[in-house]
Amino acid sequence: MKITVSLTETAIPARPWSPPGEGAHGALAEFHGIVRGTEDGTPIGGLRYRAYTGMAEKQTVRILRELGGEHPCHAACVVHRTGDIPVGETAVYAGVAAAHRAEAFALLSAFMDRLKQDVPIWKVGVLPLPAPDSISE
């Protein structure tokens, strides 16, 4: 399985990845984890993430390789943003290409569960709502 992993401090675009091998895939499953506008019921402006970058990238590759043995897929891409992420923007993108949807969905779902257990990335702070006079009309 071709694996692409990166951490970035810049915004993740709506379509950050196209799987290699056009014509080989019958399924492309994608997930965007997006910063919600509330934290514990309180409106927020965003979240601040910090990562142990080198280990986070290596650990993500290890997990994808392991899961690829259980759910054979052609390619996977994970991009996790760190630093300050405003509400509504993507914190994590994961894409999986496979011959059929069952493997793609299974790997994507299993990976997201493992990300939240075994990849050293943390939400370390909440960003306040922008001051009213800083919101452009």
């Binding site: 142990y52 280990m55 986070a56 994590v92 990300l115 939240k116 050293p120 990335i121 943390w122």
Partner: peptide
């Protein structure tokens, strides 16, 4: 060596 509290990415 890194001390890693429970993670909260995603």
């Amino acid at each position: 060596v890194a001390v890693l509290p429970p993670v909260s990415g995603g």
